[in-house]
Computed example of a mutant assay.
Amino acid sequence: MFTTAWTAAPQFPSEGFTPNWSREGFWRQSLRQAVRLGAGGGRVRVRLSHAYGTSPLRVAGATVARTASGAAVEPGSVRRLTFGGGCAVKVPARGQVVSDAVELALVAGESMAVTLYFEAVTGPATFHAQAFATSYRGQGDLLAEEAGGTGFGESSQSWYFLAAVEVDAGRTDGIVLFGDSVTDGFGSTPGANRRWSDALAERTGRPVLNAGIGGNLLLNDSAWYGEKGVHRLRRDALAHAGVDTLVVLLGLNDIGFSETDEQPTYKPAPVLEAAELIAGHRELIRQAHRRGLRAIGATLLPFGGSDHWGEHAAKVSHEVDEWIRCAGEYDAVVDLRRTLADPSDPDRLHPAYDFGDHLHPHDAGYAVMAEAVLRVL
């Protein structure tokens, strides 16, 4: 039985707030992406997403391998992937494909490289904007390139087309973290796997899947920050194999985007009331329970002093957090707001955890978040 060991939530191709290759796509190029697995096994397969493609995507070839450093992979570990027995595959517009399983022994916490070769023009690429990990691009067919990885001369901090990696772990105790940039790992050290999903996986020994999207909203779609949470939950979280627990940390951008007019990416940003956000959370709970998952609600992190803060945002965020704590509708609650608050000003992040924008934690803050979740699992 296969278990999802890694995932990234697909997004619409956009330049957005991070330089990337999603708009230009790929042509006669190889793309190598490294991902850290939350579960190990002897066989592996990958899931490719063309969710936002408008014409078929042609993948000329694909390989997996154990990573070494940079774009290099461990010599002798490269395995060619097939799709229905063939080396090439055509992914339908707005569709996805899953590769055949290939033998490659991997352990939890290990990084694996997925290399894709695109001989034909891909068009704009379905991608995940903020990977906080490095992906590599090079000219020509580099599927079998091993030590050195010298053919990969360009790099990006996004993932492209790769939506999930599954291993034959046979596990059913996976955890999905569902949220925005805090879940995505903004403020953590790039390339170091210090998101709170990584920290939670290390502490629990369970597969922990990160279904965060930077800037994501619970109730409204965004061209740059993904589909609204109430719509994308099934695809990005509930559909993954081997999951039994959902942790929700979402709604801060719905509250805070209306407090600033400096970022065009935040528009449209309607002014919302707590009752609307609570209705959104109730919908997430309903969907999780229909799937048979335990739903854990996380209160919003304190964000006083950030560009999301304002009188209305303060009021609504406190009302939503009070409902999460006291309503009893989530199966369990982790109070991240109180856990990460500055004792001298509870509306602000503790300086020891603040990345510097008063909105996102850094590595130490993410470790504290993982410890807090651990107590309610």
Rank of each mutant, 00 (worst) to 15 (best):
V102G: 03
V59W: 08
L48C: 04
R94L: 14
R58E: 14
S77C: 12
T63G: 02
L104I: 10
A88Y: 14
A68C: 06
A125R: 07
H128S: 08
T67C: 13
G40A: 15
A129Y: 00
P75W: 11
E24Q: 07
S30D: 09
G85C: 12
Q139G: 13
S55N: 12
E74G: 02
F83P: 08
G109D: 10
V35K: 05
S69P: 05
S55L: 06
R47T: 07
R32W: 06
V64K: 09
A60L: 14
G76E: 13
S111Y: 04
A62K: 04
V107P: 13
Q33W: 01
P124E: 07
V44H: 05
M112V: 10
T115W: 01
G40C: 15
R23G: 04
P92F: 07
P75Y: 02
F83I: 14
G38H: 09
T115S: 01
G53K: 10
R58K: 13
E103V: 09
V78M: 14
F132N: 03
G84L: 05
A60T: 11
S55C: 07
R47I: 07
T54I: 11
G41D: 08
K90P: 15
G76Y: 08
T122H: 01
A72G: 15
G25S: 09
N20A: 01
V121Y: 13
A68R: 08
Y136S: 10
P92C: 03
Y52H: 14
R47S: 06
R80I: 15
P124W: 01
Q29H: 06
L57R: 13
H50Q: 12
R45V: 12
V91I: 09
S99D: 11
T82M: 13
R47E: 15
R137H: 03
T126G: 00
K90E: 10
E24A: 03
A72E: 08
E103Q: 09
T126S: 07
V44S: 11
L81Q: 11
F132T: 01
G138W: 02
V35G: 11
A51W: 00
D100Q: 03
Q33Y: 02
S49M: 01
A131T: 00
G42W: 02
G61K: 09
H50T: 09
A39R: 06
A65R: 04
E119Q: 06
W21H: 12
G53Q: 13
V97E: 04
G86K: 12
T67I: 06
F118K: 07
G40H: 07
V102S: 03
T122S: 15
R36T: 13
G53M: 03
G70H: 05
A120G: 07
A88G: 15
E103W: 06
R23W: 01
A60R: 11
V78N: 11
T126D: 00
R94P: 02
G138H: 01
A88Q: 15
G42D: 14
T67Y: 00
F127R: 00
Q130H: 15
E110M: 06
V44E: 09
E110K: 05
Q96Y: 10
V73A: 04
G76I: 05
K90M: 13
F132P: 00
S49C: 11
F132S: 05
E119N: 04
V97Q: 12
E110F: 02
L31C: 10
G38Y: 09
L81F: 05
F26Y: 12
A71I: 00
A93T: 14
A133M: 14
L104W: 01
L106F: 08
